[in-house]
Amino acid sequence: MSEETHAQEILDTEPTHHEEHIVGPRVYGIIFGLLMLFTAITVGASYIDMYAFNAVVALAIACIKAVLVILFFMHVKYSSRLTKLTVAAGFFTFVVLITMTMTDYISRAWGLW
């Protein structure tokens, strides 16, 4: 019973009253600058030979840029928990698609047991 009410509390705390939060030009400007900077870094990094780490660095920078866009340009930082959960659910399912498919592709070469 207590578990039930606990879960109920979690689910019922979705804010029904959403505080209007206006993100100003200053924040947008800073994020814009950061995004341009990261673009320059990622292009520059691609000219340095880091063997396998070229891909890691490029994708890490892409993830940082995506997170900046999602949090600030798309206002997720200031949004309700429901919105955050929605974004997370999307990426979670995407990861499931990739990892579960990869279980096949990685182990196909291992042959029969």
Partner: peptide, 21 residues
């Protein structure tokens, strides 16, 4: 912004990460 994010990933995957191999 979402369309922008898709490109943010397409750019390194298609253009950048194979520069040196």
């Amino acid at each position: 912004h979402f369309v922008d994010i898709v490109w943010i990933f397409l750019f390194p995957l298609l253009y950048l990460i194979s520069r040196h191999q």
